[in-house]
Amino acid sequence: MDYLLKGIYKKEVMYRERCAREERKRQVMENDKLQCGECGFLSNTVGKAEEHAKDYCHTNFILSDDFFIDQHCCSCPTHCNSPMALELHKKKTGHTEYEDTEAKRDRLVQEYLAKIEAAMKQRDEQLRIALEKEVRSQTRLLNKKLNMRSCLDSIKQSLKFDEQQQRALKTLVTIVKNVAEHPAEEKFLKIRISTIEKRLGYVQDGFKFLELCKFEKVEGGMFLVLPSYEVEEELLKAANDELNRALSVMEE
């Protein structure tokens, strides 16, 4: 008999608890809201309250007639959706600056646009620097080509016979070609002047042409040396073009 009474009492208790839960749900749906007593989070549905409890392990919820607000903390990612949540967050963190969603969105958009503008300015500055460098490089190369052409014209004027002129120009072609094809081999980067001065017709403009290719006189003027780090493919190509131009003019 006692066993039956206990079973009936237990069912009665469970029924009353279920009715109480249903009543709370009904009240929330009609007027009141559920509010977390630990952080102030405000919910207008039981589902949202249960989701919050699951995410943050907060279980202390109360019925509340608090109202919703929309405030994002400017110092951390926290979003406060009720006055209670805002006050609790202020006390806990000491943060004092807050903004609503629209203001936050506008601020983030402005920050994003500012970053884009800064990146574009930086890119434009980099392009400007690169263009200026390219212009300086091409101008320097053009000036050297003109000086090379002047040297070759002087060589042809200084040497009376075509055979002498061709030998001088072909000597320069060989030197330039060897360096261009073997820029790391020392035997092509160091030339004894006495071995080429006769082939160049003892004309100083021949040596000047090589100096325009960045050869330097060393060891008391006994050698011409082109440091490997000074080898410029574009400059050597320009020198070769000028030499071929000069030779083709002679052959016409």
Results as ranks from 00 to 15, higher is better:
16 R>C: 14
188 F>W: 15
48 K>A: 15
13 V>G: 13
63 L>K: 12
193 I>Y: 01
35 Q>P: 04
164 Q>Y: 09
58 H>G: 07
171 T>F: 06
23 E>F: 07
205 D>T: 04
244 N>T: 01
9 Y>D: 14
46 V>A: 07
139 T>R: 15
203 V>M: 01
72 H>L: 05
69 I>F: 06
247 L>F: 02
152 L>N: 06
155 I>F: 07
19 C>M: 15
55 D>P: 06
31 N>W: 14
243 L>C: 00
80 C>N: 10
115 K>L: 12
193 I>S: 04
214 K>C: 10
148 M>G: 01
63 L>V: 07
197 E>D: 11
196 I>V: 13
28 V>P: 05
157 Q>H: 09
159 L>T: 04
149 R>F: 01
91 K>R: 12
76 C>L: 11
47 G>C: 09
130 A>G: 04
73 C>S: 13
230 E>C: 10
239 A>W: 11
247 L>D: 00
141 L>K: 08
212 L>W: 00
33 K>D: 09
140 R>Y: 03
89 H>L: 07
201 G>E: 04
30 E>K: 13
31 N>R: 15
36 C>L: 10
26 R>Q: 09
101 T>Y: 07
128 R>N: 14
91 K>Q: 13
249 V>W: 05
116 I>P: 01
23 E>T: 08
207 F>C: 03
139 T>P: 10
